[in-house]
Amino acid sequence: MATIGAPLLQAKEGSPRGPLERREERLAWLMLLPVILALLALGVYPVLSTLWFSFQQGGSFGLGTTSAGLANYLRLLHDEQFWSALRFSLLYSLVTVCGQMLCGTALALFANRRFRGRWLARAAILFPWAIPTATNSVIWAYMFNDQYGLINSLLEHLGLLNPAHPIVWLGSAQLATLLIYVLAIWKANSLVALLVLAGLQGIPEEVYEAARVDGASRWQLLWRVTLPLLRPVLLVTLILRTIESLQAFDLISAFTNGGPGNATQNLGLYIYLQIQQFGDFGYGSTIAVVLTAITLLFIVLYMRTLLRTGTR
């Protein structure tokens, strides 16, 4: 089975010679043309401008900047906030993407079973994700307020918490980080589940029948049949979740705003701070470029690993 990563990594596309191939090539470019034009028109300028600003300094909101050479990149080396934000971003990406992939796949396998009330499971998959991220984070912060929040109240009703000593959920770096992980996994396992569910439908029933005839158990079916066949979908899901988790912004900014202190400030918040609040286009763009490079690294890594283990 080909994977979407294949064209990226396998250089050998061959050069079409015959008239049939030439027609195919023409058709391909015709079909690609609108996308390429649209991306050239809208996507290229902001990217180039970000790259350019990463070599500029001074000025205010990108006005009146002067050439900086590599100064912005060198500044990164000594910027503790950058490193702590980077650390947070990487851990966040690792933990939440793993969590989302596991929970989402489990949800999808569950919702793919046939039983009465399945629509509820499917609605349950959609809900977290259909709530606007920023609104959702405000609701979560509300639920985890230590005084008038739902969670502490529930714990008190269950006798697990003394009202005089409420748990300050967002007041400690560890708890706040943990809650951000939970929130992020909860919010986006839907997307994984949706994609996996769609992928599951592409697996013909005959494959399972054949495996069952061979005496495969349920677990063996899952590990030997379902998951390998889902590899293309899982890979693209992994890539999409990684990109988005590294670019996370709304979710954290409306939930903790990077607090307590700067304990939950990720690269997204830090870039936004530098660009939109400080007007330091040069430095903000530099961090954005670094973030892009890291994202690219992750994706290449995933594709190499997954392609190596799954060729056909």
């Binding site: 307020n145 005084q147 000593h165 300050v168």
Partner: peptide, 8 residues
């Protein structure tokens, strides 16, 4: 005198 949750 101030609640422990003050920082939030």
């Amino acid at each position: 005198l101030a609640p422990t949750g003050t920082s939030t």
